[in-house]
């Protein structure tokens, strides 16, 4: 059975509109008008136990809104969802015992106290028996390498250390599913790597299902096996990360070093980016052209010393997906 099951989930926000100036204020007070904003528009997907999934999209795409509905913070406007067999917005507190959540800017640690105190408190809040908690704390401290600063007041921790503590705090009660809203936001490269590593270990060692949002292509590339792309509240792609990498962005950059200069080089289906005495760099689209054809054409004209084909970076892949108009990606979507 799927641990997360979402069907036609939608959220429409209604915001009061106000024209500028005093007159606008008075009018808004007397006769309020509303604009409706569809933040999430009938999305459906299912997540199996043990999956590590990235939920990505541009600013305002509806990622946080979706996570809020799945954790019970927001009621949806339409559609259904079940997390571990419970409807999140109907059984918030019951669900709380089996899921964990981290929202980038909202801390669940006591600011002036060492993280350890917060952990102990959370142990009581989640009703973890005393002896279990001690064991669990040891394991989590080791897994997340917190020993060094667990007794330092949270306000004195670096952002990266704090985020490690936040995630640790959210898994003390051994949740089966954990929702992470932008866990690596604002972190430096090293801290990001650290967070990724422990999310991965959490997934592998405890088989925790992980649902994370991110803007960082690295999170997706290094961490997630599956990626769902949401744009303007609609899912435009739901596929595996490797499929995405190999099949989605279909341009390749080819770098060629000449053995001898080849000034008259002509390639019929490639876009030449740079052409010098020493070599040539060109872009081809593998959807319309095969690399072999282009290379054949090249070999017929030039004497080559070295050839390399660059795969596009995940970042570019994602940028490309966002650029497409809504709906176009769906033909490519395979789960």
């Amino acid at each position: 059975m799927a641990v997360i099951d979402v069907n036609g989930l939608s959220k429409v926000f209604r915001a009061k509109t106000k024209e500028p100036g005093l007159r606008g204020s008075v009018r808004a007070l007397l006769r309020p008008t509303y604009t409706e904003l569809g933040a999430v528009k009938g999305i459906s997907f299912a997540v199996e136990a043990g999956e590590l999934l990235a939920f990505i999209g541009r600013n305002g795409a509806g990622k946080s809104t979706t996570i809020k509905m799945l954790t019970g913070i927001l009621n949806p406007t339409a559609g259904t969802a079940q997390v571990l067999g419970l409807v999140p917005w109907e059984s918030r507190r019951q669900l709380a015992y089996t899921i964990g959540s981290v929202f980038g800017q909202k801390s669940q640690l006591w600011y002036h106290l060492p993280a350890l105190d917060s952990f102990r408190l959370l142990g009581s809040i989640y009703e973890i028996p005393h002896r279990d908690l001690a064991k669990r704390l040891d394991a989590v401290v080791e897994l997340f390498e917190l020993a060094e600063f667990i007794k330092t007041p949270v306000r004195k921790l670096s952002l990266g250390q704090r985020m490690r503590c936040e995630i640790a705090a959210s898994i003390l009660h051994r949740p089966q599913v954990i929702f992470l809203d932008e866990p690596t936001i604002g972190l430096d490269v090293v801290a990001k790597l650290k967070i990724r590593e422990l999310i991965k270990r959490l997934n592998e060692e405890e088989n925790t299902t992980i649902f994370l949002t991110s803007h960082d292509a690295g999170d997706i590339e290094q961490l997630c096996k599956r990626v769902i792309v949401i744009n303007h509240g609609e899912i435009i792609l739901d596929t595996s990360t490797s499929y995405l990498r190999h099949n989605y962005l279909t341009t390749r950059i080819v770098n060629v070093k000449f053995a001898e200069p080849c000034p008259g080089l002509r390639l019929s289906n490639a876009e030449i980016l740079k052409h010098t005495e020493k070599g040539v760099k060109f872009r081809i689209n593998t959807r319309s052209t095969s690399i072999e054809d282009v290379l054949g054409e090249l070999f017929a004209q030039a004497d080559t010393a070295d050839i390399s084909v660059e795969e596009p970076a995940m970042e570019e892949v994602i940028r490309d997906i966002y650029r497409r108009p809504a709906g176009e990606g769906e033909q490519d979507a395979v789960s």
Binding site: K68, G72, R92, R93, E127
Partner: peptide, 11 residues
């Protein structure tokens, strides 16, 4: 609206 985040904790 942060109150909603507190409501998904078991207390």
């Amino acid at each position: 609206g942060d109150v909603a985040y507190k409501l998904i904790r078991p207390y």
